[in-house]
Design a protein around this nucleic acid. Sequence first.
RNA 1: GUCUCCUUAGUCUAGCGGUCUAGGACCUCGCCCUCUCACGGCGGUAACACGGGUUCAAAUCCCGUAGGAGACGCCA
Length: 458
Amino acid sequence: MTVRVRFAPSPTGVLHIGSVRTALFNWLFARHNNGEFCLRIEDTDKLRSTEENTQLIFKILEWLKIDWDGDPVIQSSRIERHKEVAHELVRQGKAYYCYCSPEELAIKKEECLKKGQPYKYDGKCRNLKEPLPEINPVIRLKASTIGDTSINDLVQGKVTVHNSQMDDLVLLRSDGTPTYMLSVVVDDHDMGITHVIRGDDHLTNTFRQIQIFEACSWKVPVFGHIPLIYGSDGAKLSKRHGAASAIDYMRLGYLPEAISNYLLRLGWSHGDEEIISREDAIKWFNFANVGKSPSRFDIAKLQNLNGHYIRERSNESLLEYMLPFFNFELTDRDKSRILKGMDGLKARAKTIVELVKSAMVYVQAPTSYDEKCKKYQTELHKSLLKDVANKLETGEFSCEEETLCNQVRFYADSKGVKLVEIAQAMRSALCGCLTSPSVFEIISILGVEETIKRFKKF
RNA sequence: GUCUCCUUAGUCUAGCGGUCUAGGACCUCGCCCUCUCACGGCGGUAACACGGGUUCAAAUCCCGUAGGAGACGCCA
């Protein structure tokens, strides 16, 4: 049997980073087993689903190189099929029309709550013989209430729930539209899904869904419920924690390979391996090593990984990746300067946004100076800068990084000042801040003319 | 409240009864490198939730307790 999995996000909001991990695990499991990874857009909540969110799902998956097999299934296009299944179940006596009004049920629910009892639909309409006029009924499944249902979850192991916990869930709403529970089961069956891998917030739903599978006499797939991702405070990861959606991380300048590596290691491990290539991830991924306990999202570790992957990328590919982050068009001269200085820049950046910011040195003279630069604007520093500028202009000082470094070092000695004094003054003039790659490297890339211009401006 | 699940350092985790004076990574701290900041190198602090069992032996198995999470919709 070939493995066939699905990722089924709902476009009612921007794709959550936790969903991305679910997609990744599904994808890795499929690729590891030479199986298929399908995509299904669960857009049955028409009010809240948007085309924009749907497009975003495609965009993020493509960005992360999580490719899907076949065309995505749009769940809303399958509503007629879902309805048909519900009506068929009624014909077979496995489901029934229920005429209870939402108000009526709300009252019953409240009563239960008062008594401290768990609420379950009481099955009032289960054995109704005649339809009630002038009321649009819902269709409910006749759930089995005796015995228990067990699953052998890929992650959670054997989990058993007593059927007495279950009630007759709604399959079709009073307006005739199918519920999520029904749609998922019908689609998973029709798509030939063999393994349902999803967040463990669905674990308890699983038992109700199994009852639908069984009512239809369909084969129940294998389930794997992976723990959710929480924020640093242990609460569900949300905007409150900074960024919860995948697109945020993309905009913040995180590389797709860093995101995948981070997400993979969150809740899964392969011994002491930390840096894991796609190839190895496919080779090694399994559910035996997926942890059962929820994990917290740690931005510092993501940043560390991102820095690693920035350093690992070629200078050319980094430049290309950076281009959209500039809010203007770079000239060829800008590009060539950045490329030359990239080694020095990428060792310092944790995100592409930081990299772009630091690369501005090679694009334009500082427009303002940090408060800390003031320390290097004394008369002494000015005269030192003037000297260096003159020596550069006359050609006494070389424009080659190493030679210049030695020459300035020698000059500093002769003046009886520390190299750091001159270097920091130069850095202030060149970058407008006290943090940058080697000033000698910057000068060698910028050239004499631009260097002197910035010295004078400072 | 009911049901289900979880519990190794601040965080992610290794560990599947003896090899654990508990390993790795991030964070943090110190040192080295050094024109700044990084990168890199070296080193340090820091954990088996608690209480009972089982066993010659328990982080590892069992039972409680505590804490945490999720699910209990005509949302998905």
